[in-house]
Design a protein around this nucleic acid. Structure first.
Lengths: 185, 185
DNA sequence: GCCATTAACGCAAAGAATTTGCCTTTGCGA
DNA sequence: TCGCAAAGGCAAATTCTTTGCGTTAATGGC
């Protein structure tokens, strides 16, 4: 794979217009009504182009979803590691358990390629790393990033995926627990 | 929904033969090659029957997957709460991270109906409850079931879903942590 | 036990999506 | 500039999905 995605390339243009078409269609109709011929029409390409590049609708949706799941900013600085983590976790839980959030996660996980799911996990991890680094610079005690992934991110995501939306109180509990459980310099 | 599934009913027969056909087809070919007409042919029904009952392939696969994810036995008794949990968690992680295991989870999560995912989570929870009850009968200290779900099951599942297969050592660490973290009578 | 009711299925035709072969265009490097 | 290789357009063939209508099987009242 050569990943011919230089800004001016034809591949890049096609990808951009197809992604844009998907985002617009998802915004204006139900996910189950979106089809590849529809996307192709809106994007100004032929369906066969999409089939050849993405294989099927599932993969295309996963591709678009993972892009939308990329954080668009650093976690806000709330003054301390715990406050940072609390603020971040609440926002994360809220975004991910919203209708569109759940659909994006589903799209990412439903794709055959595990690659997109990895990316998605990596984005989250990076956010935690930023918070952890900030805490370390302040000289605070902060748990290992892996511990936060296991004890905070994983439970939030598990509940969202398996039917039970976590509320703010529970998220705060999780934060408190992870902060007291594995702290170290 | 009336759930006309008495053993002798026609609905029950159709469901059984369709499920069986799906299981057999999944065993002998790739998931992406399985189609509804194929299943219908093998099950001895017409495709329209399947479309009307399940809606699409995704829902049917989810239906079959959740059935296969139902535990077929109680967690083994290894002598103590911690040993029970360790044995159970290792087996769970292994089954779920195997190729077929991952596919079943994906199928369940990819379906639009969250119902199947809930069931799946409930099955797991029940297994933990059994282990917890057994520990309590023995007079042992054992953590709350919710805590075990958050700190053991969720991390295992998160890693499986988002690309990183947990090995035995990590599973044991998780068990140790949850046993020491939240123990109570 | 028999008949009316209704939900589910089979069949087949119509409609929509997917695959594929072949040709053209585009971007890249010699 | 030219040739090469990768990607896209087009259209035909195939396959899947939807739907209307008639039939069958299970259920409940009598």
């Amino acid at each position: 794979m050569k990943e011919n995605l230089r800004p001016g390339g034809r591949s890049a243009r096609v990808q951009a217009s197809v992604h844009k078409a998907v985002r617009e269609l998802l915004a204006e109709m139900s996910r189950t009504d979106v089809t590849i011929p529809l996307i192709a029409g809106k994007a100004g390409v032929t369906p066969s182009t999409i089939y050849r590049r993405w294989g099927d609708l599932q993969e295309l949706l996963a591709d678009v979803a993972v892009e939308r799941l990329r954080p668009d900013m650093q976690p806000i600085d709330a003054g301390s590691g715990k406050a940072d983590l609390e603020a971040w976790a609440e926002q994360y839980a809220e975004e991910m358990s919203s209708g569109p959030g759940r659909e994006m996660i589903r799209d990412v996980l439903a794709a055959q390629t595990g690659e997109n799911a990895c990316k998605c996990c990596e984005y989250t991890r990076q956010q935690i790393v930023v918070i952890a680094d900030r805490a370390k610079v302040r000289g605070e005690i902060f748990p290992e990033v892996d511990l936060v992934m296991d004890q905070l991110v994983a439970p939030i995501m598990y509940r969202i995926l398996f039917g039970d939306v976590p509320d703010s109180a529970r998220v705060r509990d999780l934060v408190t627990r992870v902060m007291s459980a594995g702290g170290r310099a």
